[in-house]
Design a protein around this nucleic acid. Structure first.
Lengths: 151, 151
DNA sequence: GCGATATAATTGCGATTGCAACTCACTGGA
DNA sequence: TCCAGTGAGTTGCAATCGCAATTATATCGC
């Protein structure tokens, strides 16, 4: 029995589900849209001039392109972002956040941040926060590299 | 700027997505069903006599009841589990894993375990594995308690 | 300069998820 | 005993996701 026990992994997936579920619950309770919208809005807003290319955004959010297309469709319909094609590269599509988008993101952040600060972060001291964060980034990198090495 | 920075949180959600995506990719590549099936099969198999009650299972998997109903529908259709109602409590439904279910779970586990051992666990030393696991369990507990305190 | 290949984004369609409503069975107090 | 309340599980329907194919543009090799 020298094998590593994957307890940590199962704690990881279970806690992720429990936390996301609770965050979604709080957002819904406050009449705000689902959690995924926050990520997308922030991904756009944090780009240069509040703009990002689609594939760059999909990559940052770790979601599939076709799902991003339709997520952005929905955001656009609500007037939270605008979409434009690039004159230089006819394939490229740019997404830009609107004022309404910024405002909604801020309102969502209040709820979201509170939940994270209350439920998640206190379980780690400052040193652990940095270390675990780095370990998780490494794991994400390993996962991406593994998938690319096949493709 | 004494506020906690939620970097750890974002590493958490991003790494989760990247890892799940890569695990799904490997399972699909091996011609095996999606990741969620593993969890469900293990949830059933690990119960007394390879049996569990629906609501107990939903709770363990941290998924909603109505989703479990339909997940079990699919597993049942594939002959991986059987379903039975309780004679004592007419409301209760029991799910039991079949031999085919056990066998499939084992095959999935080979792929799944390899991925976790290769991509995730090596990022943490043994001591960190225990500590982080406990911290995450605490966070999950806090999330559950928070949702219950409202309900 | 032109065909083969690669990249970006999108779309059709079937599978899965989420919400709200529903059925059926147990429980506890008047 | 009977009926309001609660718990377990399921279902209808709309929203979202995942896969494979499609469109449009750019790039590479000759």
């Amino acid at each position: 029995m020298t094998n590593p026990k994957p307890d940590l992994w199962f704690s990881f997936v279970r806690s992720h589900r429990a936390l996301i579920r609770e965050i979604e619950r709080r957002l819904a309770e406050a009449g705000l849209p689902a959690y995924g919208w926050y990520d997308a809005l922030w991904g756009v807003e944090s780009g240069k001039n509040g703009t990002r290319r689609m594939h760059e955004l999909a990559d940052a959010l770790v979601i599939e392109r076709y799902n991003l297309t339709r997520l952005v469709d929905r955001l656009e319909q609500e007037g939270l972002v605008t979409r434009a094609r690039s004159p230089e590269d006819g394939r490229a599509a740019y997404v830009t956040i609107t004022e309404a988008g910024r405002s909604l993101r801020k309102r969502m952040w209040k709820i979201y941040e509170t939940a994270v600060n209350e439920l998640f972060l206190p379980q780690f001291d400052i040193k652990a926060q940095r270390e675990v964060s780095e370990a998780l980034d490494q794991a994400a990198l390993a996962a991406r590299q593994s998938s690319q090495s096949v493709q």
